[in-house]
Each structure stands twice: as C-alpha cells, then as structure tokens.
C-alpha cells in the first residue's frame, strides 16, 4: 500500500468560456516528499490546484486521492471531505480569530483538550508558539505563512497544496524563510505539492518536478532529468535559456555548427540541437563568431556573439569576458548534455 501514489490525475479537463485552463492533464505523485508544479503564469496550474482541492468541478477526466476517485465528470467530492490541505497565495487567515484559533479551526470535531494539544504541537513545530495569542494583522508575511501552513496541516491531510507560497516574500528573506519552512514540512512527512512559476526555485526545492504549459503536462521527473534531458523544446524552455540550432544526423552522429554530437538513437536526416548556454565554451574548433557584448550576471558573464550566417548565440564566461568585436570559436563542452530533436518540433 505504501507505494500507492497519493495523487493520480488522469486526462483532467477544465474549461472556462473561451479557453481550456486545464486541457487533458495527467500525472501522479508518490507518497511523501516535495513536488513542484512549474509553469508560466496563466498556464492553468492554479486551476489544477483548485480542481485537486475540490473548489471547482472537472469537466472531464478523473482525480484520485489515495486510490479513491474524488473528481470525475458529474462527480465532485466536497473540499471538506477530500483530506487535502490548501495554503493560499494570500494565506487567507481568518481576521476574526487569533493565531491559535486559526490553527485549530479545522479541528472542530476534536475534544477541547486534544485540540489544544494538537494546536500547541503545530505551533511548536513551525516556531510560532510565541504568537499563539496574536492577531493575523500583527504578523509579518513569513509568520502569516507559517500559521497558514500549520492550519492546513492540523487536519493531517494526505496531501498539502501550496499556491505560489514564496511569491509574497522578497530577497534574502525569501530564501531563509523557504529553507526553514521546507525543512519543517519534510519533518512532518506530508506529501507536498507546490505551485510556482520560478524555475530556479522549483529545481532547488523539488524532489519531483511537474512541468505544465497551456493546460497540459509536458514532463514529470527529477529536476536534474528535466533540466538536462527535457522531452521537448517547450519543456526545456520552462527551466531556463536554450540555444537551438540545426543539425544533420548521419549514422548515429549529429553534425552541428558546434561540432559532432553522438546520437545513437536518432534517425538519419535533418534535426535540431538543443543545449543550455552553459554547454558552450570557447574552443579550438566549432562555430566562429564575433562578440557583440557581455553582461555581468553575478557569478559569471553572459556573452552575446554573432556567428556565421548572422546566428546569435549566448554563452557563459567564468573569467574576464572578451571585448566587443573580439573573435571567438564556440564548441560544446564534452560532458554537457545535449538533446537532438526532430526538425519539425
């Protein structure tokens, strides 16, 4: 039983007048661990979250929680019966209740003594015991979020959903709050699904990534796999900048402007090479180009260059950048993952 997925989404469709917010999405989440649903703004990820929570009905497809079907066409199990916790982007704390009462809100069925004990334990775990008697408007953004998460966990949901939980926090605070919170969530052992549009954040915190665009799931898997072995250009673009260029495959080897790339499984013919900017380095052979400008980006310089045929490429340069107008030859790093995709994708 323990390897049964906590969540199974199967061909789920949710349409609003004029558009399909969720358009045949399918994926499963294993029990435990932190997963991130990543996609650009407006791709339907928040809608999908609301469908999982039961706040909206599905038009087609099924949603199963711990093996039980909770949503299908004509079936919507009420949100209060799903055993799912949801933390809203604005935290949605109840302004008329203090912190302890907010956290205990979902425990109405419990005896007063048990409820008090459960609330105290949660306040302790999320380091907000000193705020028990405080009112929501007195709390900082990070504190409000801890209260909202403690409140959602009070009912011991099998799955905790968080909608863009860190978007309201800024700068260095964001990282500190996020790391502390994720450590607490992991120690709680709950399965967590976090919705975000920030790829770096998603890759940093997730055990499993679910990539979504235009209402569809593009790829699921470990962050490293999704980043280095994307299944499509669209999936690859979600996780960062790309360099895409033409290639010709002959006998398991792709000939590209940057040099030859072994592609044992690709059929012969024209194709496209997809690599990350950090895969390109100056070398002896490859694409001759002229540096147009370089920009400082913290740990490295991002260098723009124009190659033969007016092709624009960018690469990362760790040391001092070349001056504008300097010639450079770009080649692929030997250990860099590269993807060859059919030319028509």
């Amino acid at each position: 039983m323990s390897d049964e997925p906590v969540l199974e989404i199967c061909d789920v469709v949710r349409a609003y007048p004029g558009r399909r917010a969720v358009d045949g999405a399918s994926f499963t989440l294993p029990r435990g661990g932190i997963s991130c649903l990543l996609g650009p703004s407006g791709c339907g990820k928040s809608s999908l979250l609301r469908l999982i929570a039961g706040l909206e009905p599905v038009d087609a497809g099924t949603i199963r929680l711990r093996g039980e079907t909770v949503a299908a066409a004509g079936l919507t199990v009420a949100p209060e019966r799903r055993g799912v916790g949801l933390v809203f982007q604005d935290n949605a704390l109840f302004p008329h209740l203090d912190v302890a009462a907010n956290v205990g809100f979902g425990l109405a069925g419990l005896a007063a003594e048990d409820r008090r004990a459960r609330v105290a334990a949660l306040l302790d775990r999320f380091h907000i015991a000193h705020l028990a008697a405080a009112w929501p408007h007195m709390l900082s953004g990070g504190e409000q979020q801890r209260v909202a998460i403690a409140r959602a966990l009070a009912r011991e949901p099998s799955l905790l959903l968080l909608d863009e939980p860190f978007s309201g926090l800024d700068g260095h605070l964001r990282e500190a709050v996020r790391d502390a919170l994720l450590a607490d969530l992991r120690s709680a052992g709950t399965s967590v699904l976090i919705v975000t549009h920030d790829p770096e954040e998603a890759m940093m915190i997730a055990d499993k990534l679910v990539l979504m665009a235009e209402g569809r799931i593009l790829q699921t898997g470990k962050p490293q796999d999704c980043y280095h072995r994307p299944v499509s250009i669209a999936a690859a673009r979600l996780l960062g900048d790309l360099v895409v260029t033409e290639a010709v495959v002959t006998g398991g080897v792709a000939t590209t402007p940057f040099g030859a790339v072994p592609t044992p499984n690709a059929p012969d013919g024209t194709a496209r090479l997809v690599v990350r900017p950090d895969a390109l380095i100056p070398g002896a052979s490859g694409l001759p180009a002229t540096v147009t400008r370089s920009r400082f980006a913290g740990g490295f310089y991002l260098v723009d260059a124009t190659g033969a045929g007016g092709r624009h490429v960018s690469y990362r340069c760790a040391g001092d950048p070349p001056a504008a107008g300097a010639p450079v030859t770009l080649t692929l790093r030997a250990d860099a993952p590269a993807m060859i995709v059919p030319a028509d994708e």
Partner: peptide, 30 residues
C-alpha cells in the same frame, strides 16, 4: 472583508458551504 480564499480555506478545513458562512462570514461581519 472575507476574501474568496478565506471562504475556500474554511471549506478545505472541513466546513460545508453553510458551515463556512457561520464560521467565517458572519463572525467577520458581526
């Protein structure tokens, strides 16, 4: 003052539609 997300939070925390009105809307608007 009651945002839709507060109402939805009450739902995911175990209250039905009427229950959410009594537990959140009415006390906030008292």
């Amino acid at each position: 003052r009651v945002t839709p997300s507060m109402r939805h939070a009450a739902r995911t925390l175990g209250r039905g539609e009427t229950g959410a009105a009594f537990a959140v809307d009415l006390p906030v608007a008292r």
